[in-house]
Design a protein around this nucleic acid. Structure first.
Lengths: 225, 225
DNA sequence: CGCTGAATTGACGGCTCTCAATGTCGGTGG
DNA sequence: CCACCGACATTGAGAGCCGTCAATTCAGCG
């Protein structure tokens, strides 16, 4: 999806490029917000801190993704953004949107964000651990695929902790589930390396309809079998 | 919060008013979207249907709330909206935003929606049933309060089923939790009627910091005590 | 080579879902 | 006026999933 005009992007790349190393904040919750960002390379974690000091991950952004549009009415950051690895960003002032009277364009950009949020809500409210992990991996795969990378093998840029904070699961549950998926032959995992072996089954577990399929192959009893 | 210019709203009220009776759809997922709405009176449930035919409630909208901004990039509805009671709406064409070059205005409007989504994600990911119900009631109370109604006593316009679909809980859990809150003296419930007796404790259960407070009064063991 | 933090694995308990029955309110028709 | 009915709500019992606690392994690094 082309969020912004290519020429516009090119213009800005020349002046608004930014390189951040792993673990650096792009912005923090509460700061003044006068710009949004597009990921050029690397990856970003968006999160907020609950009142009891715990972290809730809102999303991960890959190259091409837009983030930083979620601001309060006072133009303050509603969430924090931190790099998960060495990351190159492109900065766009909010004024940029007003200048070009891109009201409808803005709607298109925010649409993706809302779609993401809805998907997350849906996962958290209606899916169990297996479904959430499977959905998460399938989503990552399709996003890598749409960017020209392999949808079967990729490196996770986020920790198990981050995945858990994103999916509302304990780290141990994330780890256990991945192991079980591996034992089931759905995928191969080694630390941050993931290879999806049976994409159909993965999508089935995720609760996504797949064409041909024999019986329900829900990953169960594999550990004891 | 003044989402739209008062004069503009007045202009539109004259021509774009709409009355819907209980259970009528304002729009459905997938339909063409060329307008958003403001609730004048009554209440709206926003929801989407999962692949397995189940419903996921995304939010409830009270008088003054804006809804219908979540559209795909193709300007199609990303969710459905249905009235929970006899409801009066005001319709605003999307073109209305573009015409006035209200890019930044649009940002402010969508901000509220995103804030809402973030809160929902946070509840679903990090709070147990007690925390979700308490947060839900506290949110409703504060929204009624900001509209000039009582924050202590109000009528729920949604069913237990709807509340469960919103909070990712089974209907039985919603019912049980409300009963337990009542036994604990936090509130009084009878069907759709709710009266909050101890707002501080409610907020404490919701995971919201409250000034003075003795020991943790988490509602537990009340049923058996 | 030892240290540190991340990841894995196991045991256990509790919260919440599911299944099922009962209770309650509002509407309908005799 | 009252009996009946259906939708919604409440309540109970049992089981399963997942979080917590704890120990262990592993990779990276000085």
């Amino acid at each position: 999806m082309q969020l912004l005009n290519s020429q516009d992007v090119s213009d800005h790349l020349k002046q608004a490029k930014r390189i951040n190393r792993k673990g650096e904040h792009v912005f923090r919750e509460g700061e003044e917000a006068d710009a949004f960002y597009v990921v050029r390379s690397g990856s970003i974690k968006s999160y907020l801190v609950t009142e009891d000091g715990e972290e809730q991950v809102l999303g991960f952004y890959l190259p091409g993704d837009v983030f930083g549009l979620d601001t309060t009415e006072d133009q303050l950051r509603m969430s924090s953004a931190i790099t998960l690895e060495t990351t190159s960003l492109c900065r766009f002032p909010h004024a940029y949107l007003a200048d070009k009277a891109q009201g409808s364009n803005l709607l298109r950009i925010t649409a993706e964000q809302m779609q993401r949020d809805h998907n997350l809500v849906l996962m958290l409210a209606r899916k169990d651990a297996d479904g959430r992990i499977a959905s998460f991996l399938d989503d990552l795969a399709s996003r890598y695929w749409s960017r020209g990378y392999s949808a079967s093998a990729f490196l996770l840029s986020m920790s198990r902790q981050d995945i858990g904070c994103y999916l509302g699961l304990a780290v141990e549950t994330v780890s256990r589930t991945l192991t079980r998926f591996q034992e089931c032959g759905v995928l191969q995992v080694n630390r941050r390396e993931v290879e999806i072996l049976d994409h159909d089954t993965l999508r089935k577990i995720a609760g996504i309809r797949v064409e041909a399929s024999p019986g329900s192959c829900k990953v169960a009893g594999v550990g004891s079998a």
